[in-house]
């Protein structure tokens, strides 16, 4: 009575990786190389040990913040409170190092991690977009930092030894803070590859519903991402407090834009699921080389903000996966 028309199954494409994916994967690295070459034409000694040391020193806190943010962005969310948490961490360190010593160095990153747990828990259980929750958290921790510090910078005198090595120690002439940050990026990349659930955060960003409907604890994954972001913000706070010999209620705030810019220009998609800490490392290098480069060709540092803003928008426009967006708000 009925005849089903035979349908030919759609020919499967040879590979899931599109040309666009390949370009996005290689593009940041090319940008970095071109930038370095350009700067070299202006400053031939740009790759000297002293110059690289300075570069890496300024990169360390940005990279730590950016790695933390990478976890959240992989899940498709964002934590706008991360830079403020690093500022709060410097304040807490400045207040507690004199009395607690090493205890403060351990306690502060744990507390920073807990701020992430709090944000992540609200996002996961109340099911509210992360940019709103973390915006609220940003206000909350700004107020706390200002109150605890009476809105002023606190010099760290007693107890500085506990964090001083972060700035002073060199391995092969390079600052230990940046080396630790780079090492962390590599360790996390390896973990993503070798663990059976290593790509859980990527999958959160790509297909959270499918992940949950396969029996995975998606709420726990989400909270984990924010907790790691908090932890790395705390570590960034340690580096900042060490390099500035002080804690201040807005010490890390100015790093918010460069850190987000580092994440997105490295090729991590803001829609989640695509990226990793090595991409973020490339992004962070681009940002610091760019800063030096602008200086070298004589551009006023006043333009820096404009460039961060443009870089963030441009990188997001290029990497965003529009096929997976329903309504954009």
């Amino acid at each position: 009575m009925t005849t089903q028309t035979p349908t030919r199954p759609r020919a499967a494409v040879a590979s899931g990786i599109t040309v666009k994916d390949r370009v996005i994967a290689v593009f940041p690295l090319l940008v970095l190389i071109v930038l370095v070459l350009l700067v070299l034409t202006q400053q031939p000694n740009f790759l000297s040990i002293a110059s690289v040391r300075g570069l890496l020193e300024s990169m360390a806190p940005i990279l730590l913040l950016a790695i933390g943010q990478t976890f959240v962005i992989l899940t498709g969310g964002i934590d706008l409170s991360f830079a403020v948490v690093s500022s709060l961490s410097t304040v807490l360190l400045a207040l507690w190092l004199p009395d607690m010593g090493v205890g403060a160095l351990i306690l502060v990153p744990i507390l920073a991690c807990l701020t992430g747990v709090l944000t992540g828990t609200v996002v996961a259980f109340a099911q509210i977009p992360s940019f709103i929750v973390s915006l609220g958290a940003m206000g909350l921790w700004t107020g706390v930092a200002l109150t605890l510090s009476s809105a002023s910078t606190i010099r760290i005198s007693a107890g500085y030894d506990v964090i001083g090595w972060v700035t002073d120690m060199r391995i092969g002439g390079l600052p230990v803070s940046a080396l630790i940050a780079i090492l962390l990026a590599i360790i996390i990349s390896v973990a993503i590859r070798v663990l059976s659930r290593g790509r859980a955060l990527h999958t959160m960003g790509l297909a959270e519903n499918a992940l949950l409907m396969s029996g995975n604890p998606t709420r726990a994954y989400r909270i984990l991402a924010f907790a790691l972001c908090g932890l790395f913000s705390g570590l960034a706070g340690v580096v900042l407090a060490s390099s500035q010999y002080s804690g201040g209620p807005s010490l890390g705030d100015t790093l918010m834009l460069p850190a987000i810019a580092a994440v997105v220009i490295g090729g991590n998609a803001i829609t989640g699921g695509v990226g990793g800490p090595l991409k973020t490392l490339v992004g962070a290098l681009i940002i610091v080389v760019l800063r030096v480069g602008l200086n070298a060709i004589g551009i006023d540092p006043a333009y820096e903000q404009i460039i961060y803003g443009a870089v963030i928008i441009g990188a997001v426009v290029l990497t965003i996966d529009r096929s997976r967006l329903g309504i954009v708000k």
């Binding site: 609200v122 509210i128 709103i132 929750v133 915006l135 609220g136 958290a137 940003m138 206000g139 909350l140 921790w141 700004t142 107020g143 706390v144 109150t147």
Partner: peptide
């Protein structure tokens, strides 16, 4: 801080 909490 209170404003941040109010938003959330």
């Amino acid at each position: 801080s209170v404003q941040g909490l109010v938003i959330v």
